[in-house]
Design a protein around this nucleic acid. Structure first.
Lengths: 212, 212
DNA sequence: AGATTAACATACTCACGGGTATGTTACTGC
DNA sequence: GCAGTAACATACCCGTGAGTATGTTAATCT
């Protein structure tokens, strides 16, 4: 296009810029995958150039780490009230927790773990572990402790394996939703997301209540 | 090491070679990830050089496709007898099917979907869809039809959502086992694999039997 | 209003690895 | 036993993209 060598926009916003970069990075990573995503793409999506990124982040990996921490905090922040609301029985709080975490079409949800399941896992164990700890493990830990509460309250049977159950609930939903979102043109795999989430919760709770 | 320019071993085995290459490729892909795996690595693992690979496969993607087809066939081949054994009740056949597919420490199991979950998913949708169809979807389809059998036989409640349940069972187990195998030094995530598989099956069956 | 630094842009380097072009040697048929 | 081809090995090409070095301009302080 024979650019008229118009020097690029020069707006200086050192306080908004980092978060803008994180959001742009999430977009691009989610669309292209971490490795395939070029830093030039991220920069373009954020309306800047690569130099700006390297002004705030030392390396591509550090940028990804920033994305993880930022959006993980956002996601769990929107669920704190449910955890503290002791007026609801544990089963209801589990339902709310899972539903809020998984049936959420905005960016704080799926794109992130999608990226992390992909190219990150093996090539950057440090980042992957950090994410595992602050994400999935944290979530199924919360669920497991709610189940324990439910046991003490007599709502669930006492011999249930709360730990493994919570793990399966979380990982099952994650992978299903990843696939749904990832292959929307694959007819056979596309089911209404709400149906999946509801069915998962029902299945989980039913197994906790059943008489063994 | 200043190689003495010893020309590499020249053994010609055009019939074993392709499978050897597939096995070497699976190893390297599983260890390094698809993108990070160099074709030189695969060649070295197979005891040949890159030229040999390109003699049998047109491209890196084609090699991966070969890996998928080969090992998928092996895995499902070892389960056919269970499916055809009509003497066992569906619940028992589900248990056997899942256990055989997931509690299997050899290479036909985890390494493959681990690779495909990672870098393949987004960057090569053709390969990913092929795998989804011939792997997970096939498996949960089998389970769902067993559940239908169980409903007709009166073993399971008729209003259960067999489709979604089977999906969650498969994807939950897959992701759990991936993580286990992927972060064996992460204490908090490591549980006995048999316990996970058994608990998953029990949870699944319990929800099918419970009185809603 | 000039100096200084922060917040960017621009231009370049350089390793890496998929693919290719070409050489070399083991078989196979005749 | 000798072409001819298949089954490899070797050497090279070349795009790609992370990281860097350096230039440039806006804000800030005095």
């Amino acid at each position: 296009m024979t650019r008229p060598a118009q020097p690029l926009r020069r707006e200086r916003r050192p306080d908004q810029r980092p978060q803008e970069l994180l959001e742009a990075a999430l977009d691009v990573f989610a669309r292209k995958g971490y490795r395939a995503a070029r830093l030039d793409d991220v920069a373009e999506a954020a309306g800047v150039t690569k130099g700006a990124i390297y002004h705030y982040f030392d390396t591509k990996e550090e940028l990804l780490l920033g994305v993880v921490e930022h959006f993980q905090d956002v996601a769990f922040g929107r669920v704190e009230d449910v955890l503290r609301d002791k007026t609801l029985p544990p089963s209801a709080r589990i339902g709310l927790l899972v539903r809020r975490m998984f049936s959420n079409p905005d960016r704080t949800r799926g794109e992130l773990f999608l990226v992390l399941l992909r190219d990150v896992a093996h090539e950057m164990p440090r980042v992957h572990h950090r994410w595992l700890r602050t994400g999935p493990m944290r979530l199924w830990g919360l669920i497991a402790s709610l189940v324990e509460e439910g046991k003490e309250a007599g709502e669930f049977r006492a011999d249930a394996d709360s730990e493994v159950g919570a793990r399966l609930l979380v990982s099952g939903l994650m992978l299903q939703l990843i696939w749904q979102q990832h292959a929307p043109h694959l007819r056979e795999i596309t089911i209404d997301e709400e149906r999946v989430v509801n069915a998962a919760v029902e299945l989980f709770l039913a197994s906790l209540r059943s008489v063994g």
